[in-house]
Amino acid sequence: MSTAPAQAPSRVRSWLSRDMAERLALPVVWIATIVVFGFLRPDTFLTTDNMFVNILGTQAVQVMLALALIVPLVAGEYDISVAANLSLSAMIVALLNVDHGVSIWIAILAALAAGAVIGIVNGGLIVLLGIDSFIVTLGTSTFIAGVVLWISDSRTVGGISGDLVNNVIINKLLGIPLGFWYALVFSAILLYVLEFTALGRRLLFVGRGRSVARLSGLHVGRLRWGAMVASGLLAAAAGVIYAGTTGSADPTSGLNFLLPAFSAAFLGATTIQPGRFNPFGAVVAVYFLATGITGLQQLGVDTFIQQLFYGGALVLAVALSQLARKRNAIQFTPGE
């Protein structure tokens, strides 16, 4: 347009000048963590096997699950059922592929379809019946966990096709398992949608000013529902990557990803784009937490450190975002 300002748009300027320290605090702390543990345990910590495969590779599942949480969180909804969804997805892949000899690709499609159905049911209950998303997904989560135990007879199903395992954790690009790159691609897509499309902007308004959004003629119900379906799909994709990472599926271990995913989503909201749930903030948060835990374990600290770290990080992240930045604080319930 002819009226475009001569100087750089203020958006760019604000990125460069303002709050650089805040945006980059967590990434810097992450790098510092790597340096410290590398110094303390150079023979075990700073190996490619540890850094690239153990941390970057296996944590791809955790990144995917954090992304699945971010979409509904932006729209002002919780999805507690993502971890159960992940377990179901991994179990569907294993059962169809191993027990029934179905092609791995069909099995993956079936898992994603199940994830979408879960999202549709969650969204329907939340939007059509007006039930709080926390309660709905707490219920469906337990229900799904029961279904997983039922269909698997409570056993671990191993021997998933090498096609999946190779393409997730064995084959590498730049020395890092492909699963990591998948998670990064999904993060980039999500960043694009949330930050650079009208859809993302509208989701943000639905989360922060639901009445404003409704009075502006946005289809608030549809957007909330869509966020739940996207969450279901992303959680199912996380399940597929989990199945590929371990080559098997067990009925319960997937649930352990839930709290770290919340920790990462909230801790990630204090960095990169502070005050907003953002995908690359979550990526940094996942790897910061994983690095810290792996390092401490290699120093000989007991496994309880995992709970201390993830639980503490969740509370700390929420406290930080509330205290340090009242004006941009994350809202936990939709605005007026």
Binding site: L204, F205, R208, G209, V212, L215, R327, N328, Q331
Partner: peptide, 10 residues
């Protein structure tokens, strides 16, 4: 709309 025209933290 009174009070509801704008979203405060955007």
């Amino acid at each position: 709309y009174q009070d509801l025209a704008l979203c405060n933290n955007l």
